[in-house]
Amino acid sequence: MKQKKWYDYLWIASLAYLILGFFNILFAWLGLLCFFIPLIIAIVKGNKAYCNKYCGRGQLFSLVGGRFGLSRKKDIPKWMKSACFRYGFLAFFFAMFFLMLFNTYLVFAGTRSLRMTVTLLWTFRLPWHWAYHGTLFSDGTAQFAFGFYSVMLTSTVLGFLTMILFKPRSWCVYCPMGTMTQLICKAKKLPPNGKQS
């Protein structure tokens, strides 16, 4: 058995994040850490240390799918690990993310009123008004929180589904952040003349 490090417990933070969003949606802003930390590590250090060590979501899937056995532990279908699907999913995720940012902008600009819903799988609008208790700032800050929590909850649900159907950390194969940081690392690995060393 390997000695546990402090970062092996980051799954608690991931779980806490999901739970806190039920009580106060503004906690969703903390999720930006899961966006910026991997990107900064990839850009500055040129590696995927975030995925490899610190990703609490991956640890949560390992724990539930591995230790608790909530996974069939079957191979993921070939198409799901193809570059086509991985980059396609990244592009789709980006598009949905920018749509969310645009909706937030509309609330900031006052063109649209605040929608207190969490959109699951980009389709299903779940009422979530109990988690909003007002904000000191513009309603837009709350709209971003609802939007960002939707992104996080959707990816967790997808991750859990593939965890059950395939291997515990199947989400890692098509995780948009993983794909993006790998792309950054690939770009950093290229020598200046553009040819792979």
């Binding site: 990839a42 590696n47 240390a49 995925c51 690990k81 794909t179 690995k189």
Partner: peptide, 24 residues
Amino acid sequence: RECVACGCCMKVCPKNAITIPEGV
């Protein structure tokens, strides 16, 4: 060519034989 560099293998290796030096 297919590796996503997630590091799952690295975590379970009892001999610490696996590294992902450049994130690729």
